[in-house]
C-alpha cells in the first residue's frame, strides 16, 4: 500500500520536503509503523518530543490502521506570535 506523508512547519524543515510517499509490502500498517520508519530515516525528528499525526484529517493514534492511499499529516507545534 502507498501512504502519502505531508509535513508542516518545522517538520518540513527537518525532513527537507513537504511531501513523501511510503510504500509498504505487508497488508497491516499502523501510524506507529510509519512514524518508526520515518524516525529511522530522519533521526533529527527524534528531537521533537511531540508532534501531531493526522490520518485523512482525523486524529491518528499509534495503533490507527492505515489503508492504501491514506494521507498522513505530521504537524509539530509552533509557538510564534
Amino acid at each position: 500500500m502507498t501512504i502519502t506523508l505531508r509535513f508542516f512547519a518545522l517538520g518540513r524543515e527537518l525532513v527537507g520536503a513537504s511531501e513523501l510517499r511510503y510504500v509498504f509490502d505487508h497488508p497491516t500498517v499502523t501510524v506507529s509503523d510509519v512514524v518508526q520508519r520515518l524516525k529511522s530515516e530522519y533521526a533529527v525528528l527524534e528531537q521533537l518530543p511531540s508532534f501531531l499525526v493526522a490520518v485523512n484529517s482525523e486524529y491518528g493514534m499509534n495503533d490507527t490502521a492505515l489503508y492504501d492511499g491514506d494521507e498522513l499529516a505530521i504537524i509539530p507545534p509552533v509557538s510564534g506570535g
Binding site: L10, Q47, L48, F51, Y59, S79, G80
Partner: peptide
C-alpha cells in the same frame, strides 16, 4: 491532549530567528 510536552527551546525558532510573513499574524 495532543502536544503533551513542549519541544526543547533550542530546536524551535521564534519569529526573530525563523522569520515570518508579516500578514500571517
Amino acid at each position: 491532549c495532543f502536544y503533551p510536552t513542549p519541544p526543547p527551546p533550542e530546536l524551535i525558532p521564534n519569529c526573530a530567528e525563523a522569520g515570518v510573513l508579516g500578514v500571517l499574524p
